[in-house]
Nucleic acid binder design. Structure first.
Lengths: 268, 268
DNA sequence: AATATGAGTTCCGTATAGCGGAATTAGAGG
DNA sequence: CCTCTAATTCCGCTATACGGAACTCATATT
């Protein structure tokens, strides 16, 4: 996650092509993505592992350029507006959203739960769309929300769809990030892979958040270039594993099938 | 806009605090924000004014870190998924959207046109929300869309609400970016300022896009920290200047007033 | 007041990271 | 096979970014 992880740097002699000052600066920017929106230099230094003076210079530069915004009363920073434009200009080009929208909505309506579409970025799954009936309880995750890979159904479905080599690599990274709880995490993933092989979908039953159950089905683009995941999630008292198994799972698979064929027609 | 513009750099001796490698890298990233989504090194070099070899190293670094994505068939790059998360995590914290939403929707319903909320980033206005009745014609601008400041009603309303010093500075920048059409652009802005002073709103009647008319009202946050702009836009044959003047303008002003009081109650 | 604490900024000598012009490679076309 | 165009790599140079230490500037604490 940090610059130090970069393979080229690890492997002995330095990579003449790699601009580490840029990497450090971006490391700082990424800090602001996680739940906290307002950070001071100290906090940033702790998260990135960069020395105080470096962080100070980076935040100075980013503020000067308008990528960070400075609150002088509490001298802390938050992200500048630029990233709104960047983020949305990306989503606009994702045709899949338009195609999937009506299907997701009607499934949300039917299940009275959330139906979500996510992709992977780094160590997280990111919602790029989510629909729910207005009466839905539980956590309200919005588009752009990030959830972990290892303990959520969405992340697990992603892992199941990933080519073996990459899956092993990613699981290694997950392991490193929390060596302690790895045994449990590993069990959860293995169970997911069994489920997926047998049924075509996988779960997270209270393993991410105590009170949340979810089921997911991955969608691998026809050219294998991208993996997206559809999930259905809700309060555990509302969505039982039997409902998933017999009703929602097949419907979700059906949804994915329909989206996939619609996509392939589009791309011709 | 480019690094060279940075004031500190201009003023003789260099700013020891400023990290230019970072600035250059971000200059490259920002290239991808404008309409084109896929760029090669050559194109990037042209836009940023950076030498080929530098661009090559920057794109290499950004790709390595996952901020850019590489298409090897056409060796070009596009933005990575990271920015989806960044963008959305920003919008989530904008309370104004929740407050304004119902009012914007009902005005969109009433006018059968688009009702939009925008803020400024750099040389553009950026939509952070937009509502329209499904039957609306004309350009479909989505959240995250960028429009120019000088020729749109939204940009002009922003200029009108800006403190004089800053307005002069910004207008200077606009002038520099297109010296040739400046005389006309200036006229448009001056007209807008007259309108705004007299009526409280201003227009763009076919001046941005031939077939689009729009009207805007700015909202200055009670602590003067931020300017937002509400606009109503649609096909010119559908929204006439009389309708703006007598009906839509006052309604839009009314909307802004309501949002402002709701905001101030919230912040206590 | 005096002292401590904690965060942020600035200084400054140094090593080196990043620079960019030139050479090289890779591809696409004719 | 040659010509163009674009991207990459090389490599010597020096400006650049680094980071430990010193310095501010608040805000508590006694």
């Amino acid at each position: 996650m940090t610059t130090a992880d970069n393979e080229a740097v690890q492997s002995g002699d330095k990579d003449r092509k790699f601009i580490s000052a840029l990497a450090r600066g971006l490391d700082v920017l990424v800090c602001f993505m996680s739940s906290d929106r307002v950070l001071g230099n100290q906090e940033i230094a702790k998260r990135t592992g960069l020395p105080k003076s470096t962080v100070s210079r980076v935040t100075y530069t980013l503020t000067e350029l308008g990528y960070l915004r400075y609150f002088m009363d509490q001298n802390k920073y938050c992200l500048g507006k630029t990233f709104i434009g960047l983020g949305y200009s990306m989503l606009a080009q994702m045709h899949i959203r338009r195609i999937a929208r009506p299907l997701m909505q009607s499934l949300a309506e039917y299940t009275q739960a959330s139906v979500n579409l996510g992709i992977r970025d780094r160590q997280n799954m990111v919602y790029i769309d989510t629909y729910r009936n207005s009466s839905t309880f539980t956590v309200q995750l919005d588009v752009g929300s990030q959830i972990p890979i290892a303990t959520t159904s969405m992340g697990r479905a992603y892992l199941c769809a990933l080519p073996e080599m990459e899956r092993i690599k990613l699981m290694g990274q997950i392991r490193k990030s929390d060596e302690h709880s790895w045994p449990n995490i590993k069990l959860g993933i293995e169970q997911a892979m069994v489920d997926f092989k047998k049924k075509g979908f996988c779960y997270s039953l209270g393993e991410w958040r105590e009170e949340v159950n979810a089921i997911s089905v991955p969608l691998v683009a026809s050219d294998n270039s991208e993996i997206m995941v559809f999930s259905c999630s809700g309060a555990s008292f509302q969505l039982t594993s039997e409902m998933f198994e017999k009703d929602i799972g097949p419907r979700l698979q059906n949804l994915v099938g329909n989206v996939k064929t619609a996509l392939s027609h589009l791309k011709v």
